[in-house]
Design a protein around this nucleic acid. Structure first.
Lengths: 339, 339
DNA sequence: CTGAGGTGATAAACCGGTATAGCTCCTGCA
DNA sequence: TGCAGGAGCTATACCGGTTTATCACCTCAG
């Protein structure tokens, strides 16, 4: 017998299908003795539930979805997603929930995927990343009544559950550190301005400037690419009063910035300190190794999974979980300013 | 009506459920007029099939799986997987097939996942990556009768379908190029020896050495990590007769190697030429930018998807597809040897 | 005029589970 | 003694599709 069904088990145990179902799902309706016998037979026949049959009967598919709307090119470099995925899976696997992953080009396509998933009952819920200001996905998901958890932002007036880290505090810890080293000209090479976290980081820099007595603290937005990271760095370093420290919103841009500094004869950390807002193997491969903000992305994913499962189970329960604060890992790219 | 079923359509069209099913799946049994009417009603009610119901009836789930057995740490840096994923999805989405992704720690866990997927009918087939010599997954999959396609290797005596590139030719093109530049001491920092492609690359170097008159052409295996890449480079550059060119099996190791060269005062490409077997944004961020072998990984994934769907439809049909050869992208890290 | 064969449809079984109504005992309490 | 109530189990409907057996009807050849 290749693939036993509960009917086979019922036959062998001399009970009804219903009793087998009760026993296998740990719900009342059978005696302990019968339950034990059924479980043993199931084990021995190496029975496993047919996912489609269960989904049809129980109207849940034990599967959640993650759509990433980014060009594949930028995806690969970011260890963020790999760690997030691992964390998500770690949180899901304990409940035998599987993960559907889809990479699409833009937000419209992403919303289309949600519609399809909802109408085909392919997932019980979804995880949202890269939240933008006035994100259209939030309304779309609400309309679809698809449970969701937002990663790294708030779910729009508390409507969607979320798991988030405090970008503001994190940015402040970087700027505080640089100011303590003696830097007064600090620049911030930010990412895409429509991302919520970009906004929060820019605001943090702006707010901290007066308190720390910074002479200049510009935030320049980019598209997160190495090319714009390099171009922006070139512009900053060409100024008369160039910054003595630059904070980059991503590790890739920080590495690109380091390249520009070398190319222009600006020594790091002698003439310029560099900090990356994201940590990865990239920052450690460099010479000098880059000071970077380390986040526990794996744990982030694990918590997101837990929250999502909770929201699926109890849709009314809107959870907003703040995760552990990221910490600044100081390496070789930061030092007091030379003059 | 939130989610219409074919019964609703049947009611509205005044026909039976069966007729609707025939019409929607484009199979004979209904007249063209009725078919058109049913399709129109389905469209208007924005009907979509319930995936679980379809899976249960048709015994296929329109979903395939990919398991990656690697630590998440190394995963993120490799653009390879992001591109492969995009390509796979591109090939699958035209047939409305979804992809399940799972990252696990080791091969045993991977095989367990296959067993679970097979017994729970969660996927119609799987894609295999990182093929090792005498790979245990091949026999496991055959035992499970789970359709599969192997990426980047042969499916064990032609048993499993495969999509592969010619690693041997690729390595020869690198070594030929370095020899043409005048290099006679070429070293090869290889990956894990149990990978099939590592073996093929090592063999290619060994076979080419006499023909090209190479004085020395050692292949040193590593675990693919930046640490071992750096350590091996350090060892090579400390030798009396140190190599004038090093070929690295991955971009991460090449970058680590470049760092070691800088740290030891060995100029690149003046004193040492460096080639990476894998291309990515990493190699382009470096100074000097690294000469690297570029593969069309997206297309690779797309073809793998096509082959897998073919194998699922016709299990007896074992396809072995050779993809386009990778090309060497020459950048700043290679030059004729100095002396 | 008859019968073979094809067309267009229906009804019902089926896929493998879950959920529920109901039945049979058994126990405990008035 | 009678009966309420619960434990333990069965039978059956149901989820939303697919597939098969069957049938009515029409056409056309013999």
């Amino acid at each position: 017998m290749a693939r036993p069904t509960i009917a086979d088990i019922a036959d062998k145990a001399g009970v009804s299908k219903g009793a087998v179902s009760f026993a296998l799902n740990g719900r009342p309706g059978v005696s302990d003795a019968t339950r034990a016998r059924i479980l043993q037979i199931a084990e021995q026949m190496s029975w496993r539930p047919h996912s489609a049959a269960r989904a049809l009967g129980a109207s849940r598919v034990d599967s959640v979805g993650l759509v990433i709307a980014r060009p594949a090119r930028t995806l690969g470099v970011e260890p963020f997603f790999a760690h997030l995925l691992s964390g998500l899976q770690s949180g899901l696997s304990t409940h035998s929930i599987s993960l559907q992953l889809l990479i699409v080009e833009n937000t419209e396509a992403e919303i289309e995927v949600y519609k399809r998933w909802a109408s085909e009952h392919r997932v019980d819920g979804v995880i949202l990343v890269d939240l933008t200001v006035r994100d259209p996905r939030i309304d779309a998901l609400r309309a679809l009544e698809l449970p969701a958890v937002v990663i790294g932002g708030r779910g729009g007036k508390g409507a969607l559950a979320s798991v988030w880290a405090d970008d503001r505090d994190a940015m402040l810890s970087i700027v505080d550190y640089l100011a303590a080293l003696g830097h007064r000209r600090i620049a911030h090479v930010a990412g895409t301005p429509n991302f919520q976290h970009t906004q929060r980081r820019i605001r943090a820099v702006r707010d901290a400037a007066p308190r720390l007595g910074l002479i200049d603290a510009p935030s320049l937005t980019t598209d997160f690419s190495d090319a714009e990271g390099a171009a922006t760095t070139r512009k900053l370093l060409s100024q008369a009063d160039r910054p003595t420290a630059i904070v980059y919103d991503s590790d890739v841009m920080a590495v690109a910035g380091l390249g520009v500094a070398m190319e222009m004869g600006v020594s790091v950390p002698g003439d310029l300190s560099i900090v990356a807002f994201d940590d990865s193997i990239l920052t450690q491969l460099m010479h000098p190794a880059l000071t970077a903000l380390s986040r526990d992305t794996f744990e982030f994913g694990r918590q997101a999974a837990e929250v999502l499962l909770e929201v699926i189970a109890h849709p009314a329960n809107v959870i907003n979980l703040r995760t552990a604060d990221p910490v600044l890992t100081v390496r070789e790219s930061t030092a007091p300013p030379s003059s």
